[in-house]
Design a protein around this nucleic acid. Structure first.
Length: 496
RNA sequence: GGGUCGCUAGCUCAGCGGUAGAGCAUUCGGCUUUUAACCGAUUGGUCCCGGGUUCGAAUCCCGGGCGACCCA
């Protein structure tokens, strides 16, 4: 241990040597329990008014990770960090004797320590614990990243999130906020009588959305299974069964690319309310998001990546046709044939029109490529083409459209809602059209879920449904640029 | 899928054709009010990988890997 040790392997070997040294000196480097009297934030708040130089003869116990260590001859200072914050430990050799020497040689940055002592504010104004005894609670074998610059390598931050969390407090704050958001959302729905019911992740038909599923296999049943791409079809079965207000907040899996906005597994909440339509769901969505934002952030005026966003209701409501016309000048209500719609879109430079088989799909392509990004302030876009909405009821007054809205904020689709299609025969026709697309090679198109159709045949009340991307909501409310910043362990390609 | 940028010590980074560098961390010593402590010393490298050009490559070229950003 007297030789210099500097590669990671050597640093680790040195620390393993310290583990052995601890045991030789009767110190358990991995003990079982510790009881603190206060969190660090508690102490900082409770003694905020203690004068520099003043001491309080109150015994306290704290614990946390050693983030800084300054030994000054017969005196030492440690910064100890717990989940709530940091507090300084003040240690004197005179008071600690051998424990002081052990501190110098056996305690490293990154170790977890418990400490008991009394409070004092140092001459320099730092609230400190004048330590009477301390206990090693866990010996760290790996060194902490740079104490000042922390860990900035993005790949390493995602691959070793525990290190990221350890040294970047704002990352901890993001996940704390995420937990507050989902808790507030559940509280909101609970207050309004919605019941959270868990539906299967493993399914024999992956329906409810246009997406490629992950495939797996049940050995005993010798059954190919899909991971769900939506919770929609099972939650609707629950509505058929008589639950009038249900929701599920859970993980969805889509076998798609990875980007700043997409992770193969992500979290959605889907909400279904019997006897309601999409107008009711719009009111619910607006109220839900503003309530959650108000509870979690305490304001509806937020900033996202430098852009001010005003979440105050009422939010803008505009039909897809109207907003497309406003942004591009194209009036799709006048196009009756595919060729004229395509020609108009082509003139705008819209791409991917080969896949569009109807004027409605062309309008949607124009919307996605020219309009979405402009919808920065919260906006409900209403009344989508029926061809791209197989689970939505046709519009009660506008032919060719369905009663559907999507919510856009900062240019991103954040929620999607329908007056749910409840006519079983119509639903069968729509799903069979999807299945035909799949047979023709579209891997994002779903097959027909026969049991779902049968459920509808038993009779489903008029129902409003809404699905919302939780990750995108958390990104918005935590000002996070990438979905990977709001998913604790995002999917990455393995190294090497 | 395309383009741009990045990858050098445990961490943060410099070096951009001529002996592999700094700060922090580590290790040792000093120091009774520090807080990015300080002072002195010590030490640490598959310069992402493979190939090429060159007397000589971390540096230039080609291919690959991983990542970031932008575009689709």
């Amino acid at each position: 241990m007297t030789e210099p040790q500097n590669t990671l392997a050597e640093i680790r070997a040195t620390r393993i040597g310290k583990v052995a040294a601890c045991r030789e000196q009767g110190i358990d480097p991995y003990p079982y329990r510790w009881e603190s009297t206060h969190s660090h934030a508690d102490l900082q708040a409770k003694f905020a008014h203690l004068e520099p130089g003043a001491e309080v003869d109150l015994g306290v116990a704290v614990a946390g990770r050693v983030k800084a260590k300054r030994v000054l001859g017969k005196l030492a200072f440690l910064n100890l960090e717990d989940e709530s914050g940091t507090i300084q430990l003040y240690l004197e050799r005179q008071a600690l004797q051998t424990a002081f020497e052990q501190l110098k040689h056996l305690v490293d940055l990154g170790d977890i320590l418990g400490a008991q002592g009394t409070l004092k504010r140092t001459e320099r104004g730092e609230l400190s614990i004048k330590v009477t005894s301390y206990t090693l609670l866990s010996k760290a074998l790996q060194p902490l990243p740079d104490k000042w610059h922390g860990l900035t390598d993005v790949a390493k931050r995602y691959r070793q999130r525990y290190v990221d969390l350890m040294v970047n407090p704002q990352v901890r704050q993001t996940f704390r906020t995420r937990a507050l958001i989902t808790a507030a959302l559940r509280r909101y729905l609970d207050r309004r009588g919605f019941l959270e019911i868990e539906t299967p992740v493993l399914q024999t038909e992956a329906g409810g959305a246009d997406a490629r599923p992950f495939v797996t296999f049940h050995n005993t049943l010798e059954l190919p299974l899909y991971l769900r791409i939506a919770t929609e079809l099972h939650l609707k079965r629950l509505v058929v069964g008589g639950f009038e207000k249900v929701f599920e907040l859970g993980r969805i899996f889509r076998n798609e690319g990875v980007s700043t906005r997409h992770n193969p597994e992500f979290t959605s909440v889907e909400v279904y309310q019997a006897y309601a339509d999409y107008q009711d769901m719009m009111a619910l969505t607006e109220d839900l998001v503003t309530t959650v934002a108000q509870e979690v952030l305490g304001t509806l005026q937020i900033s996202y990546q430098g852009v001010s966003v005003d979440l105050s209701p009422p939010w803008r409501r505009v039909t897809m046709a109207a907003v497309v016309q406003a942004e591009t000048g194209l009036d799709f209500e006048k196009f009756t044939t595919l060729p004229e719609a395509r020609a108009a879109a082509e003139a705008l430079g819209i791409e991917g029109l080969e896949g569009c088989l109807s004027p409605g799909q062309v309008m949607n392509a124009v919307f996605e490529q020219r309009v979405e990004a402009t919808l920065v302030q919260p906006t409900f876009v209403l009344d989508y083409p029926v061809e791209i909405s197989p689970l939505a009821k046709t519009h009660r007054s506008k032919p060719g459209l369905v009663e559907r809205f999507e919510l856009f904020v900062v240019g991103r689709e954040t929620a999607n809602s329908f007056s749910e299609l409840t006519d079983p025969l119509e639903q069968r026709r729509r799903l069979e059209a999807q299945a035909a697309r799949r047979a023709a090679g579209d891997e994002e198109a779903a097959g027909v879920d026969e049991d779902f159709i049968t459920a509808l045949e038993y009779g489903m009340p008029p129902t409003g449904g809404m699905g919302m991307g939780i990750d995108r909501l958390v990104m918005l409310l935590t000002d996070s640029a990438s979905i990977r910043d709001v998913i604790a362990f995002p999917l990455l390609r393995p190294e090497s």
